[in-house]
Each structure stands twice: as C-alpha cells, then as structure tokens.
Design a protein around this nucleic acid. Structure first.
Length: 561
DNA sequence: GGAACGGACTCAGAAACCTACTT
DNA sequence: AAAGTAGGTTTCTGAGTCCGTTC
C-alpha cells in the first residue's frame, strides 16, 4: 500500500530497475518502383534524403504541408540530409513531387487493414511481448507500468497553432543520446549491440527512468511511469490535498486581494487584479516565453493590452472586460466578463499610455505572483486555483443538478453536465468531431424510429385494454400487462436516446477528458457514485479506474472536497 | 534582488487504434 | 458473414507550470 510508505525529503525511490527504452524501428528504404519526381523527372534519392522525404510524403494530405513556414523549415532541414549532388539539383520544394510516395503509403495502410486475422493476431502478440518486456519496471517493491517506453520516432515537428518551428526535422534518437537512470544495485539495461548509452546515473531524487535532449527546442524528454503507479498517484493525491487546504483559506485570500486593489503600490495592484482573474476565471499563470521559439500564446501574467477590451457598459451590464487571446496549445479564450468597478478602474490605469503589444501587468510575472502566494499558504501556486475551482465547481454542480428521482442514465447526464461546467470554466475545447453532423442525424433518426415504435406499442396496449374489458378473462389481462411492460420499456429506451442526444449536442466543442483526468478530485466522483448507487464503471473506464484506484478505495459517500 | 537558464514534472488535444454493432 | 462504421480508448508528444541554480 503506497499510501503508507514514507520517504525522506526529496527521495523518490530506493530501488529502480528497468530494461531501458525501445528504439524506433530503423528506416526501410522504399521499393524500387516507388518514384520521387523532381521537376517532372524521376530522381533516385540517397537513403537519408529519401527517409526525410517520406516524412513529408506521409503528411501530404495534411494542411500543414501547405503552410509557408512549414515548407520553409522542412526544406531547409531536408537539404541538410542531402548529398551534394542532390543539394545542387533540388533547389525548389514546389518542383518536388511526392504523390507517388504518398500513394504508396496509403496503399500500405490499406493493406494493413486488409490483413488476415492471423497476421493481425501475430502483430498483437508481438506488441504484447514488447510491452511485457519493456513496459514495466520495478520501483521499490512494486512492479509498475511505464507510460511511454517507446522512443519517439524521427519525423517532422508539428507544433500547435502558429509555431515558428513547424516542419523542422526531428532527428532519430540513438542510444548514444540516452541517459539511463536506475539504482546502483539493479540490473543495468544494456544498450543495443554495438552501441553505448550516453550516461548511466543513479539519481533517486527524480522519478524518470530514461531521458534525452530533443533537437527542436533543446528540451529534455523523459520516460516516466504510468498514472496508475504509486509515484504518480501519491503526487496526484497531494495535489488535491493542497487544493483542499486552499479551500480553507480562500475567503481570507479573496478579502486580501480585494484590499490590494486599493494599494498605493502599482505592483501590488497588478498582482491583486491578476490573482482575481486566476481565481475567478481559472486562467493559467502565464510564464514568459522566448519570442520566436514558440507559438505566441499567453496566460494571465503575460496578457498584453491587445488581449482585453474594456466596456464601461455592454448589453445592459456594467464594467465588462472582453478577453480574446490564445492560451495553451493556441486554444482561443474568448469571454465577456462583468467585473467589479475597482478592477475595471485598475485595468484602465494599467492600460494608460501603452501600446497594444505591451504587457498588461508590466510589474508582474509568475515568479513574483507565486512568491506572494507562497506567503499566503504553504505550497500555494497559481495552478492550485485551477484545481480548487474545478473541483469545488464539480461538487457544487453535482449537488445542484442531481435529481434523486432520476434513473441512472439521467443521473449520468447530470454528472456529465457538472463535468461540462468545469470544462467550460477551464476552457477545455476540442475541434468538433468531423463526423458530428452525421452522427447527430443518425441519432435523430433512431429517436424518430423509437417514437414510432412507442406509438405502435401504445396503440396495441389500448386495443388490448379494450379487448380485456370485453372478454374479462385471465389471458387478455395478461396480454394487457405484457403490453404495458413493452410500452414502459420503449419509453425508457426513448428517454435514453434523447438524453444521449442532448449530451452529445452540448458536448460538441467541449473536451471533458482533461478536467476529468487532471482537475477533478476523483473522490468527489467516487462519493457521488456511492451515494446514488451509480456503478463506478459508468463514470470511469478501466484506465481511469486504475489511475484513481487510490480514490476509489479511500472515498466514502459522505466525502467532502 | 532578479534575470537567465536548465530541469522535472503536469496538463493538453489530435490522431491512431480497437471493438462492438450494422448492414 | 464479410465489410463498413461509430464511438470509445489509448497513444502520442507538444505545451505549460514551477523550482533550483548561477551570475
């Protein structure tokens, strides 16, 4: 039971043994008959140049490949892989014809789909073997699942949003790039034959097993454990405990920042207004980013003047702030929020004599803000507000929306609605599924069919009743009963379908997964299930139940966040 | 102090994959 | 009964937060 184990400060484990990473399969050159054309003429590429060309060919249908920056970055990196002859011939990407290669890959995909059962079974078994050998490690006394034991294969970098580095070549990771972390007394994983690890270290103050430096941003990538592991679960639990501590002092903090709106110091005022946004709107902290290295996105502290508009009055409301900016993953945040007069006046002050591209909070950054929060409560940082507000919203919404008389599907709809309220708060959006319209129509026709079926069943019941009135025998009574049951059953089915339709419609552009997995104290959901007799499987699938195992056996129906 | 940087960890949506149901 | 589809699940890897160190 991991909940009971304790480690000295900063120590993450005592024993760690694993098999090291699985490398991407080596490049397989294209068959002779698959051609690349330059300027209308067949051209045989060197293996290295060909490999990079296939990365582009595989993405040909994606709109990425039409973007100027993507093409420019790709072409620059591709040329680095070319022989000098290739370099002198291939000077213009627009003259490159990858369509034959692209068709070949499509055919391959198709062929994979068409494989016989036996072939598919064999692949499945191979994967299982790989998972069994490399997918687990031993950390202290537990065998634990590893999250990502496969090294990322080479390919073209695809950032999110308008990323300046899109299209750049993500190089192949070799054993010589890899740092292994494990305990001294474990069996140290061996590198592939003929290769060496970059380094083997024994650092039990960190949780990762393998790391390497990626070539696009120069950042470090890690292999770590699965969410079901002790080390992740314990951390997750701690996160929610910190948020619960915030619950106890949030009123005090709110009073404090409201006072600070009046401060003589500009820095304090900015801090207080920013904190108000973080608290009220669940904005992210907003670290500074290096210009030109990433997409231009912001969070609270990095908001610029151009990201907000002030409306002294809008649609009958006073002091409205209109937010419009790109947040994490270049997801747009758009919101019109009535705020307190003091906040509004402060914002006007902060914006005075500034250009649109100037920082709104020019005296503030996340480090200043977090230092202040640390003084208000131990372990408090900006992101704790997101966790706190998400979880408390779920709890509140569940209380408000759950109708004790509802059946299980209707209660689950209520749960999803509560979940949705949180996703909206946290601005968790998704692109509407490509098949959305169609699937909605299918569902509607199912509903129509069910309605007809219900009408039929009701007619039959009516005539059975009439019949029974005349005959007054046991047999016709029984018929009435069974027809009644049929009507009830169909009504229930119809209701289920309608609930499904509502749920899906409301969920069109909302992503529930992120909040469910990362922001909602799972004990709230577990308690709710227990209270209303909802099977936990209706709320959490298998993976989620594994991740939240700690909460499932911890929480009783009276759990309060 | 505070900026710059490296490092380690959480959180993010898209895409690939799988499976159960239809046709 | 094979093939096609829809929708849920898993994988993938990029994008944040936050902390410690150094100058």
């Amino acid at each position: 039971r991991w909940e009971e184990e304790r480690y000295p400060e900063g120590i993450k484990w005592k024993f760690l043994e694993h098999k090291g990473p699985v490398f991407a399969p080596p490049y397989e050159p294209l068959p002779e008959n698959v051609k690349f054309y330059y300027d209308g003429k067949v051209m045989k590429l060197s293996t290295k140049a060909e490999e990079v060309a296939t990365f582009f060919a595989k993405m040909l249908d994606h709109e990425y490949t039409t973007k100027e920056i993507f093409r420019k970055n790709f072409f620059k990196d591709w040329r680095k892989e070319m022989t000098s002859e290739e370099k002198s011939t291939i000077t213009n990407l627009s003259k490159c014809d990858f369509t034959h290669m692209s068709q070949y890959f499509k055919a391959q995909t198709e062929a994979r789909k068409q494989m016989s059962k036996e072939e598919k079974q064999k692949i499945k078994e191979d994967n299982e073997r790989l998972l069994k050998e490399y997918g687990y490690c031993v950390m202290d006394n537990h065998k634990e699942r590893i999250a990502n034991f496969k090294i990322e294969p080479p390919g073209l970098f695809r950032g999110r949003g308008n990323h300046p580095k899109m299209g750049m070549l993500k190089r192949r990771i070799m054993p010589e790039d890899i740092i292994i972390n494990c305990s001294k007394d474990s069996k140290i994983p061996s590198p592939p034959p003929g290769h060496k690890w970059k380094e083997v270290r024994h650092d039990n103050k960190v949780t990762w097993l393998v790391s390497w430096t990626e070539n696009i941003q120069g950042s470090i990538k890690y292999i770590m454990l699965n969410p079901s592991s002790r080390i992740k679960g314990e951390k997750d639990w701690q996160k929610y405990e910190t948020a619960r501590r915030l619950k106890k002092c949030v009123d005090k903090i709110r009073n404090q920042y409201r006072e600070d709106w009046k401060s003589k110091e500009m820095k304090v005022r900015q801090r207080a207004v920013a904190l108000y946004f973080i608290d009220k709107l669940a904005l992210r902290a907003g670290n500074e980013k290096e210009e030109g290295e990433t997409a231009d996105t912001v969070g609270c502290c990095s908001l610029r003047v151009e990201h907000i508009k002030l409306h002294p009055e809008l649609d009958g409301q006073e002091y409205v702030v209109e937010f419009d900016f790109l947040g994490k993953d270049s997801i747009r945040y758009y919101n019109k929020v009535p705020v307190e007069k003091r906040v509004f006046k402060n914002l006007q002050l902060f914006m005075e004599n500034k250009q649109p591209e100037d920082d709104l909070f020019d005296r503030l950054n996340t480090s200043i803000l977090n230092k202040h929060l640390q003084d208000l409560m131990e372990g408090l940082t900006a992101k704790v507000f997101r966790t706190y507000n998400a979880s408390i919203t779920l709890q509140q919404q569940l209380k408000e929306l759950t109708n004790p008389d509802d059946n299980i599907p209707a209660k689950i709809l209520s749960y999803n609605r509560a979940n949705r309220a949180v996703a909206i708060l946290c601005n968790h959006q998704r692109a509407p599924p490509k098949t959305f319209e169609k699937s909605m129509m299918n569902l509607q026709s199912k509903i129509d069919a069910k309605k007809e079926q219900l009408a039929d069943a009701r007619r039959e019941l009516k005539s059975a009743k009439a019949d029974a009135k005349v005959r007054r025998d046991e047999k016709s009574k029984k018929t009435v009963e069974s027809k009644k049951k049929a009507v009830q059953r169909i009504e229930e089915q119809l209701m289920k379908l309608e609930v499904q339709a509502t749920d899906r419609e409301e969920n069109k552009q909302i992503a529930l997964g992120t909040s469910k997995l990362n922001y909602l104290d799972p004990r709230i959901s577990v308690a709710w299930c227990k209270k209303w007799g909802i099977p936990i499987e209706k709320i959490y699938n298998k993976t989620q139940r594994e991740k939240f195992a700690w909460a499932i056996d911890m929480a009783e129906e009276d759990y309060e966040f």
